[in-house]
């Protein structure tokens, strides 16, 4: 990083870009960690500065920095580092009401720093706001830094801030997962019960994996072994303690190394839900049909067969439903190439 102290050269710009990229990455990690954490972490009162998507600019600015811009960059970086620190503190345990605080502080800092130039002030305030939780702020900042790197002094200041920002972000991301694991999901008891009932009846090896999908409203998710699926499906519907009488959704996903069929069930009897995934190979994609259990699976399985080429043995009428009957290939497969007679 110390080589940035020299006059602006192409290498320096590249270095600045690298720093920016590293920072963006750190910010992304932090954000992902935040996304995984409880919603209250991101739940902030309204009135935040919005990140204006249309204003997106290329991450590395080539234009010459004017004195005002330099000041703006410095002020922005300062304010952002401060905001990032505040954000980290907030992430460390204080509730979301720390955010307006952080914002105010960041804005004040920016104002003090850039009092000379009104434009710089505005920019700093904007960046300070954006920089708190989102990586949009990081992008902005990266930009500001790239501009600042053109001038040695500004670059040095920005660098310090960048380091601080990275530190604070990694700090946040290392803290959040532990905070996330601390409270078990409200649906954990449901999941435990499903797993217990199913293992008692079908043995441990029938369930490959079971977890709470925290990204999807904490739905209990089971990964069922393909060969056990039909028996378990029948059981899911008929077992009085489970009674998943409603198939909400059924579709397939092509993961390139495997296929998965995803089911979302709901029980109108007990008012609980369950997501089930069944894996299959791409070459001989085949998952037992559940049309005999839930009639609503009929067209969904036909659609999955049509678009992804997954076979559903036991389906009474597994023919194409969206594409014409003579269509060649399965369009939603990742390696699908449209067949053209003329070529």
């Amino acid at each position: 990083m110390s080589e940035e102290k020299r006059k602006p050269t192409p290498e320096e710009k590249a270095a600045a870009a690298a720093v920016a990229r590293a920072k963006a990455k750190a910010a992304k990690e932090a954000r992902e960690a935040q996304a995984n954490a409880a919603e209250s972490d991101t739940g902030e009162p309204n009135g935040e500065g919005r990140a204006d998507a249309p204003q997106a600019e290329p991450p590395i600015e080539k234009r010459k920095p004017t004195p005002e811009e330099k000041a703006a960059a410095a002020a922005a970086a300062m304010a952002k580092a401060k905001a990032a620190k505040e954000a980290r503190e907030a992430a460390n345990g204080t509730t979301s009401d720390a955010d307006p605080d952080a914002k105010a502080k960041a804005a004040a800092a920016a104002k003090a720093k850039a009092a000379a130039a009104a434009a710089a002030k505005a920019k700093a305030a904007r960046e300070a706001n954006a920089g708190e939780t989102s990586d949009a702020g990081m992008d902005e900042d990266a930009k500001a830094k790239a501009a600042a790197a053109a001038k040695a002094k500004a670059a040095a200041a920005a660098k310090a801030k960048a380091a601080a920002a990275i530190k604070s972000n990694t700090g946040a991301s290392s803290v959040e997962p532990t905070a996330e694991e601390a409270p078990p999901s409200k649906n954990q008891p449901y999941l435990d019960r499903y797993v217990q009932i199913l293992t008692e009846r079908f043995g441990k090896e029938s369930i490959e994996d079971s977890y709470i999908n925290r990204l999807s409203k904490e739905v209990p998710t089971l990964l069922i072994k393909n060969e056990h699926w039909h028996g378990i499906a029948q059981f899911l519907k008929e077992e009085p303690a489970l009674q998943f009488d409603y198939l909400s959704n059924l579709h397939g996903v092509d993961y390139e190394d495997r296929m998965e069929v995803y089911y979302h069930f709901y029980s109108y009897e007990h008012h609980h839900s369950l997501a089930v995934k069944v894996k299959t190979t791409r070459e001989n994609a085949s998952v037992s049909s559940v049309t005999d259990i839930w009639a609503g699976a009929d067209w969904n399985e036909r659609e999955t067969f049509d678009l992804l080429g997954i076979d559903f043995p036991g389906h009474p009428n597994l023919v194409r439903i969206m594409m014409p009957d003579e269509w060649i290939g399965h369009p939603l497969r990742k390696d699908y190439e449209p067949f053209d007679e003329g070529v």
């Binding site: 989102s134 990586d135 992008d139």
Partner: peptide
Amino acid sequence: EEGEVMGKVPKVIRPPVGEVYVR
């Protein structure tokens, strides 16, 4: 009457790795 109509979102929407089903 007062308030923003857009929350704070990243400029580039990149959700974390995972899956979601909402209804």
